[in-house]
């Protein structure tokens, strides 16, 4: 990664919610640059405002201060691929219908969008489950649907908000490996949110650590280790301790 092209700049993002019990300041002056095709991890403790930040990035919420600048112009709705925290897939749609939805609302004809959806269903390893409905899938499979669905937007920016938070440890490790494989096959700019320190180090090209109250950027780390990374290697553990010393994550 010699020359890094800026893809997204979050500039001094602040967010204050006005509630019945008064103003709550969640984000304060959060500035993050995202480079093209990098796997950026945003690491922060629970309730620190990660989802709020992603919603602002996605245009679902407006910041009370600062701005988000996209190098290629502000994307319209539908131009970002988003994997939501927990698996919010449509219970009444089967796997295929879930994955093709983003193309469907854009009015793409059935044959074209099915072909493209199939590509991503295969990519996340759900071939053969196209007709299954979410109730018939395990948690890990549902999350794969969420990932395939986000990829099927054909967006070059992927936002993933704690996609593996609800999975058991075993499935989680599997999915981490999987998501890197997919990313290497289909390079895109990935913004991956997590509150799990090991997950951050295992996945990230760069790690942005959030903390404080209200939340701001605390530090940036670059895990200089080849992939696949080893959870028990010395470098891994050293970095883990370094970040742990600098956080208010409950560990």
């Amino acid at each position: 990664m010699a020359v890094q092209k800026n893809k997204i700049s979050m500039k001094n993002i602040s967010k204050t919610f006005t509630t019945r019990t008064g103003d709550v300041s969640v984000l304060k002056d959060v500035s993050i640059n995202v480079f093209e095709n990098e796997f950026l991890v945003i690491l922060g403790p629970g309730q620190c405002g990660k989802t709020v930040l992603m919603n602002i990035l996605a245009g679902l919420e407006q910041p009370t201060g600062g701005e988000v600048v996209f190098a290629d112009g502000t994307p319209k709705m539908g131009d970002l691929g988003i994997v939501f925290q927990k698996y919010y897939i449509y219970p009444w749609k089967n796997v295929m219908q879930n994955v093709e939805l983003s193309q469907e609302v854009k009015g793409v004809d059935k044959k074209t969008r099915r072909e493209s959806a199939q590509k991503y269903i295969d990519l996340v390893g759900l071939s053969g489950f196209e007709k299954s409905i979410p109730r018939e899938l395990s948690g890990g499979m549902k999350q794969r649907v969420g990932i395939a669905r986000a990829y099927a937007t054909e967006s070059d920016i992927m936002i993933m908000d704690e996609p593996f938070g609800a999975l058991d440890a075993q499935t989680r490790y599997q999915m981490q490996e999987e998501i890197l494989k997919i990313w290497e096959k289909k390079k895109r700019t990935v913004i991956f949110v997590t509150s799990n320190l090991e997950e951050a180090i295992y996945l990230g090209d760069r790690i942005i650590l959030l903390g404080g109250s209200p939340t701001s950027v605390k530090a940036e780390y670059i895990p200089d280790m080849p992939r696949p990374r080893n959870y028990t290697s010395k470098e891994f553990l050293d970095l883990r301790n370094e970040i742990a010393d600098n956080t208010d994550l409950a560990l």
Partner: peptide, 19 residues
């Protein structure tokens, strides 16, 4: 959130209502 998912896909209000 299910509504938001559709919104991020660029669905119109009517599509959100019906789909």
């Amino acid at each position: 959130v299910l509504v938001n998912v559709a919104r991020t896909f660029g669905a119109s209000d009517w599509q959100i209502f019906t789909k």
